[in-house]
Amino acid sequence: MRHIIEIDGLTKTYVGGFEALKEISLQVRQGEILALLGPNGAGKTTLISIVCGLVRPGSGSVRVGGHDVIADFRKARSLIGLVPQELPTDIYENVWNMLRFSRGLFGRKPDAAHLEGVLRSLSLWERRQSKMFTLSGGMKRRVLIAKALAHEPEVLFLDEPTAGVDVELRQDMWRLIRDLKDKGVTIILTTHYIEEAEQMADRIGIIDHGELMLVQDKQRLMSELGRKQLELHLQDPLAAVPSALAAYRLELAHDGRDLVYTYDSHASRTGITALLRDLGEAGIRFSDVRTRQSSLEEIFVDLIRKQRR
């Protein structure tokens, strides 16, 4: 598998001494959607800003499409499109001119047909003559995405693409990201919404305090780190968990109609067999059984708690 981005031992200490990135190494696969997940201040924006040339790296190396982002910045940068976290725009300029500017800046010949395609895919075509100050925040974000796509990049960075965005636009954004992936564009998005990473990403990297704590296939991450819960729907509600079953640390839910058992699906002994036997012996009968996997959010909180210890 080809790696479109190779980050090796990257560090960044801002003037003033703040260590924003600590020895980050990360390979991004061509064509994947990688979500960088981490709380505010984790270093997500710093990381992508270094790849895009907006922040100077400390030590380590970054290559895009095999080109070093410093030594060979022209080749590296022409592969990249960036949608920043903030929404800076020239408010008196119209949408069409902004796009033409972006394309020119990246050294591409004018191509009205391509720009039209980009605008249409973002439902901006009707607004192409609108000045930026007449557009809503959501529309502005679309324009910034269109600008990033104006030069046909192979890698698209989306820094918190759905922060402060309404549900409708969020759905549109997700659809657009999938379309771009189908066209072979590699997408790196940062977010602190776990839901977003869960919905979109092929792989997830978790950053906290400037450290990349793990990068993993989403499915594997969820199953490997995931605790599972066994929910037993009882025929007769219970007022309390019988003391004979105390060792299982069961919880009652839904007014005593559900009994919830939490276990580690990867442990050699999950304890399910014993639990079911003991339940039978205690005369507890159930009408339904369900298992539930913990969400990324729970995984995330868990992971950070472990690291802090």
Partner: peptide
């Protein structure tokens, strides 16, 4: 102005010397 408004990001991240 672009520095103040933040739009400078585009020029700085473009393949221009």
């Amino acid at each position: 102005f672009p520095k103040y408004a933040g739009t400078i990001y585009e020029v700085l991240s473009a393949p221009v010397s």
